[in-house]
Design a protein around this nucleic acid. Structure first.
Length: 769
DNA sequence: CAGTGAGCGAGCTTCCGCTTGACTT
């Protein structure tokens, strides 16, 4: 029996640490928190000074039982959870849940997983810091109170099953308000003037592109300017050279990894986390949920060696970065390769790409600055006081740029500055072409998942472990959608001076095309409007920052946690009660007009099942008619005509085999109903205009497919079938489906035996687990 | 992923942060 039990949070970490410690140590993991507030009720006893009602999390019962058993026989239990608020609380919950004896329990912490760090920690044990634990309890209880008291208000005033919370509601607010900014944005256009010159000198002939720093508001001004250029001489007035520097970005945190993987690899926030987890579990990278930019001394040393070997000593510059984020708790290192000497790893393509990104970022962070020379050339116009300007950039020493450069969100405006041709002051230039192109001011950009994470981190809302789940929550609740939206065609004017004449053209371009951006839904808009009106304090962008300050005071022992909660709760609960009493139902209702047939009002609003159109009042004797909005429609934009269209369905399109065929719109798109069977329309079909002939075609097509659907059935077992599906053959057992493995030795679907099927099902079930 | 096609109305929904598992003897 082991003398010592060490408990950490993650099993991968446990495995690593066990190797460093001797035989006397057994290392286990708690898999994060083991206890939480009761899930069924509020879980906070308000009358009894907000005493939390904790219970062992259902899926941790086994873990707790096992740890308890080992702890009983151990001489000493070492609680080695992370050294931050949550980690301290996990240790305390472990003490409580495992009923540990304080005399034989020691609390230790380390920030990096190296043998020396761990042995040092073992040499310096301490007791649990109850102030820090209290700060966590305050955080937990506050979040529960906010979430579980506001959400039911939403169920009554807006729609059932909705949710509100300190983090998610602010995330939604960001997206809603950004959309409003875009909507109210006043676009202005101006003319940007770009000239192309030819320069001939001792070095040869070259093209020089230059731009006028001033933009013209009116086309007439641009035209006047171009006219003054017709007889003008162009001479280089000045050449200015300035040295410049570029520094590498710090190593990855969770947030910056998500941003860069999104920009450079096109990964969603959750995909990044899944792949990072795989790399972590196979020991290839350090822990992926971190807010720290720190690298261990060991890592710095290896980085230096790797850079020297690969690029030479001049490329080395060791640095330790400091975090900018105030909310950072820095319980871990930055995200880096475990073994920096490995530039690549084995794995699937996603793992390889993410690993290489992490490797480059880490290595670059320890490399020398890039040295640049920025040149600005000013070109005089003999007929005009304005000057053209050409800018160039030369890299004198590439430094870290040899490996990696961080991307920016606004890729469009980052003009490429190239190398300028050699030239001297006073040299004259030959005008080839001058263009004045109408350009439009840009509204602020919509958030992507990754740029939302960046903003959330700036506001201090959410933690590395919650960025990805929060983003899925607000999409699951249908407050926001990640979508691709078509752009619009826009006209713009262009004036071109070639030779002695100015040519005028009207051209078109596509604008406003969006991909993978977050848009608020009707529900998101209505819920946000409601929350901002009745709970402005909670929705305030500084709410988290201000409560965090109080949590810090609790952690420092200056404040008592349940007093802080009491001060918050009293006015907050009053707010809840007042809102329940005074606020009306919020449905985002908008009157579209009157229905010409019945003369009744037509509304667009949020219903029990989402956004919909309603004809007539709910107080009328005759019940109102309802129709749900379709994808792409919104309460705000839907017109009376579009709304009335929706009531033309279901529509009879003809008869077939003596039975009527109805075209209608369902949850999953338009369909034809015939003889109680459903037939989905195809993308090109429109339920409003589909003909009887086409409907029959669809019915026959599906019948044929159904006939060919069954590839094989078995006498032994009627519940197993080999079927032909949308994506090729598959095996179906009861209601579950299993994919037929491909590759060498795999049989054709037709040749599968009953035994083969059983085996595939067995394997499929194992995989799912 | 492999199918689906509500609108009655009883009983349910909900937070943020930690962390990945898993059936027996």
């Amino acid at each position: 029996m082991a003398k010592n039990l060490v408990i950490v949070e993650s099993p991968a970490k446990a495995k690593t640490i066990e190797k460093f410690l001797g035989k006397d140590f057994i290392v286990k993991s708690s898999f994060g928190h083991v206890r939480d507030l009761s899930k069924k009720e509020l879980g906070v006893n308000i009358e009894k000074d907000f005493k939390p009602v904790y219970e062992i999390t259902p899926d941790k019962k086994k873990t707790v039982a096992e740890l308890k058993k080992i702890a009983k026989t151990a001489e000493t239990v070492w609680l080695a959870t992370d050294e931050d608020r949550e980690g301290e609380a996990i240790s305390w919950h472990l003490m409580e849940a495992l009923k540990l004896d304080e005399a034989k329990t020691k609390r230790i912490a380390f920030h990096e997983i190296t043998k020396t760090a761990i042995l040092e920690a073992i040499e310096n044990p301490r007791k649990i810091d109850y102030h820090l634990v209290d700060a966590q309890q305050a955080r937990r209880v506050l979040d529960r109170l906010v979430g579980f008291e506001i959400s039911p208000v939403l169920w009554r005033k807006v729609k059932p099953s909705l949710s509100a919370g300190r983090v998610q509601s602010v995330a939604v607010r960001l997206i809603v308000e950004r959309e409003e900014e875009i909507k109210t944005f006043k676009q202005v256009s101006s003319f940007r003037v770009i000239a192309k010159f030819e320069i001939k000198n001792d070095f040869g002939t070259a093209i020089l592109n230059a731009e006028l720093p001033k933009r013209f508001k009116e086309r007439s001004e641009a035209l006047d300017f171009l006219k003054t250029c017709v007889p003008a001489d162009f001479v280089i007035g000045s050449i200015e050279k300035k040295p410049g520097k570029k520094s590498p970005a710090p190593p990855f945190t969770t947030s910056t990894l998500q941003q860069e993987a999104s920009r450079k690899l096109g990964f969603s926030v959750s995909k990044t986390m899944v792949v990072a987890q795989q790399l972590y579990e196979s020991g290839k990278i350090t822990y992926m949920r971190t807010d720290s930019v720190n690298l261990s001394k060991l890592a710095l040393g290896v980085a230096k060696k790797v850079i020297t070997n690969n690029y030479g000593e001049t490329y080395v510059k060791t640095r330790q970065f400091k975090t900018k984020s105030k909310s950072a708790q820095e319980a871990h290192e930055a995200i880096r390769p475990t073994y920096l000497e490995n530039q690549t790893v084995d794995g699937d393509p996603s793992q390889k790409r993410l690993y290489e990104l992490i490797w480059k970022r880490t290595i670059a962070s320890q490399m020398a600055e890039a040295v640049l020379e920025r040149t600005t050339v000013s070109i005089d116009i003999s007929t005009n006081p304005l000057k053209f300007v050409a800018k160039g950039e030369v890299i004198k020493f590439d430094g870290f740029l040899k490996v990696y450069l961080e991307s920016t969100d606004d890729g469009e405006n980052g003009e490429q500055k190239g190398v300028l041709p050699p030239m001297k002051k006073g040299e004259s230039l030959e005008r080839k072409e001058i263009n004045a192109i109408e350009r439009f001011s840009q509204p602020p950009p919509r958030y992507t998942e990754a740029s939302l994470v960046k903003k959330m981190e700036e506001l201090g809302i959410g933690r590395p472990s919650t960025y990805a789940p929060t983003i899925s929550t607000i999409q699951k609740r249908e407050y926001v959608v990640k979508e691709e939206r078509e752009g619009k065609i826009r006209e713009f004017h262009q004036l071109t001076l070639v030779g002695d004449t100015v040519k005028e053209e009207t051209k078109t371009e596509k604008t406003g095309y969006e991909k993978g951006k977050l848009f608020p839904t009707d529900i998101g808009n209505v819920v946000n409007g409601f929350l901002v009106e009745y709970f402005p304090n909670i929705l305030d962008y500084n709410f988290t920052a201000s409560v965090e300050k109080e949590f810090d005071e609790i952690a420092d022992g200056q404040k008592v946690w349940n007093k802080m909660i009491k001060e918050f709760y009293k006015p907050f609960h009053k707010q809840i009660e007042e809102t329940l009493e005074t606020s009306k139902k919020h449905s985002g209702e908008r009157l579209l007009g009157t229905d010409p047939k019945s003369g009744k009002n037509v509304y667009a609003r949020i219903g029990r099942y989402g956004a919909m159109i309603q004809i007539g009042e709910s107080t009328d004797e005759e019940k109102p008619k309802f129709a749900g909005l379709r994808k792409g429609q919104s309460i705000e934009e839907v017109t009376l005509e579009e709304a009335l269209e929706m009531f033309k369905l279901p529509r009879e399109v003809g008869t077939f085999e003596d039975k009527p065929m109805l075209a209608a719109l369902g949850r999953f798109g338009p369909y034809i109903k015939h003889d109680n069977k459903f037939y989905s329309l195809e993308k090109t079909d429109d339920p409003m205009s589909i003909t009887g002939e086409r409907a029959i075609e669809l019915i026959e097509k599906k019948r044929k497919a159904l006939k060919e659907r069954i590839i094989k059935q078995f006498k032994e077992d009627a519940s197993i079938e080999v079927l032909n599906g949308r994506y090729g053959p598959f095996i179906k057992q009861d209601k579950k489906n299993y994919r037929i493995p491909k590759g060498k030795g795999a049989k054709e679907a037709k040749e599968l035996t009953y035994e083969d099927c059983l085996e595939i099902i067995k394997k499929g079930q194992k995989k799912k687990k």
